[in-house]
Write a protein that binds this DNA or RNA. Sequence first.
DNA 1: TTTTTGGGATAAAAAAATCCGATGCGAGTA
DNA 2: TACTCGCATCGGATTTTTTTATCCCAAAAA
Lengths: 314, 314
Amino acid sequence: MNVSLRALRYVVATADFGNLTEAAKFLNVSQPSISAAVAQFEAECGVQIFVRHHAKGVTTTIAGTRIINEARLLLNHARDFGQNARAMADEVRGEITVGCFWTLATHFMPSLLSDFAESHPGISVSLDEGDQAQILDAIISGRTELAFSYEFAVPEEVVAEPLAELPPYVVLHPDHPLAQRDNVRLADLKDEPFILLDLPHSRDYFLGLFRSVGIEPKIAFRSKAYELTRGLVGHGRGYTIQNVMPRTQTTHDGCRVAAVPLVERLEPVHLVSLRLRRQAPRPAVEVFARHLKESFSASGVFAPGTLSPRVTIR
Amino acid sequence: MNVSLRALRYVVATADFGNLTEAAKFLNVSQPSISAAVAQFEAECGVQIFVRHHAKGVTTTIAGTRIINEARLLLNHARDFGQNARAMADEVRGEITVGCFWTLATHFMPSLLSDFAESHPGISVSLDEGDQAQILDAIISGRTELAFSYEFAVPEEVVAEPLAELPPYVVLHPDHPLAQRDNVRLADLKDEPFILLDLPHSRDYFLGLFRSVGIEPKIAFRSKAYELTRGLVGHGRGYTIQNVMPRTQTTHDGCRVAAVPLVERLEPVHLVSLRLRRQAPRPAVEVFARHLKESFSASGVFAPGTLSPRVTIR
DNA sequence: TTTTTGGGATAAAAAAATCCGATGCGAGTA
DNA sequence: TACTCGCATCGGATTTTTTTATCCCAAAAA
């Protein structure tokens, strides 16, 4: 049987008014429409719903009463469904701006944003890259509602939700003897020239690693540009340490580098999502936050383990 | 928003197959039908349900997945509703309400209902006792689908199917001289005090009996309560006339009465089943109607002859 | 590259479902 | 007897849905 909600609406209205003509008036259709729909419905389900009284409207039969009560439930269900679906539109539609740490952006955002755009076509995301200070400032001022960054210098009014932990790797010229090994220890690098990514927090982090094993690195270069440090390594000017590893060994200027794990269990960096503590996120923001979290969960594109260097040239 | 179950079915099938073309094949419609329905549904609820992949079918968006799950529930609800409505048509299980005249109920219904409950455990019967006007009103309005009553004042739109004919009996105090006789004639009662059951139609019937033999009864009491008239007889306040005879000589307050046949062949009352002319009865109702008819047939519990008084005290 | 192919979108015509106004009809009502 | 109320029915208009044929684009294949 092919239930039609239209017919059901007509039948229920008729029962409510006890009279096709009034039901028709109420529903803004003609009386014959109701008559036909009711008759067809009765024929389809094989049960007489109404007793017709000449010049005195209709009354429902016993079976009719039961059917009508159930029909009411179904119509309510349908109404709720419609409202729900509609409400969902508001939730999954909107524009959001998310802050993102420079180096993380290039590595994670392409697939992150691409997947999100596909599963949430109603939400447009614009990215606001910057350093930690800019990111936090944007969060606090409300310019961005969510950010993806490191757990550095997070003030009290911002909450950091952990997403992933990235241990440090040594990045070497592929021809360097140590690049052939399965792993190295920091002590092995003691006399090698170190190329430092000299950004506010990264500086402290990297030097802290050496300090934790009692070694003083020989800093040969300092640079504020992530990709530049790799370029210097590619040209054999020394080694560097990185936590976020590009999925390629080729540097921007065409040289190659190799990444080797460290033997020591050194402090990893923490990737987090940031948002203002005292602010209920808009639904669209909430949705993106969930997407972020899922991407770094066991079933996501950036599941733990997939973040290590894929290939180490030997 | 005007949800259409048709569109919902298309959308859900599409999600199931991940591919409009197969969904169309499955639903025996053309692929453009699905395409159009899906597009319209998305437009109506303002949410994109599917992501179209070129040459690789479609996948559901996050919002789409949620909507589709709810749509499944709604479709199931609709299916159940349809099956239910349909089942009601050819159902020998169900609930029926039968109307019944007050005095007939106490006399016939106990065994009638008891037998029926035994032979048709799937059908639950609820009784709606009342006077003739109430019974007919319930039938006409559809509140009851069948009634058991007298053939009084039956309007054109109601059909009365004869079940039994009950001749009148004289009910006397057991010590009354006439109570010893095998039968009496109305003329014998001319000067006795008559106790009249004063209900709308019974009044006319009883007085009509006297009129038909040219006698004017001496009305000593009038009462609307059947059992009260017997009580008065039991207390020696006069005689009354009854067609439906309890299977006991003891009245509610402990006195005894005797019933004696009448010599004259007077108009009997007609027990009938009543139902609306222009209504196809549900199977369950049909079954009860048949049970009623059989109970009053030659092989039934209330076969003709068994309705006479069993014992007359002499 | 170029070609093929799979599968959704679109357009126009056809079919079906609905709708409406007019009208019929039966039973109450004046 | 005439009139009104209210459901049923009919023919034609209108709107929805379906279909057929075709287009179009990206992925796969050559």
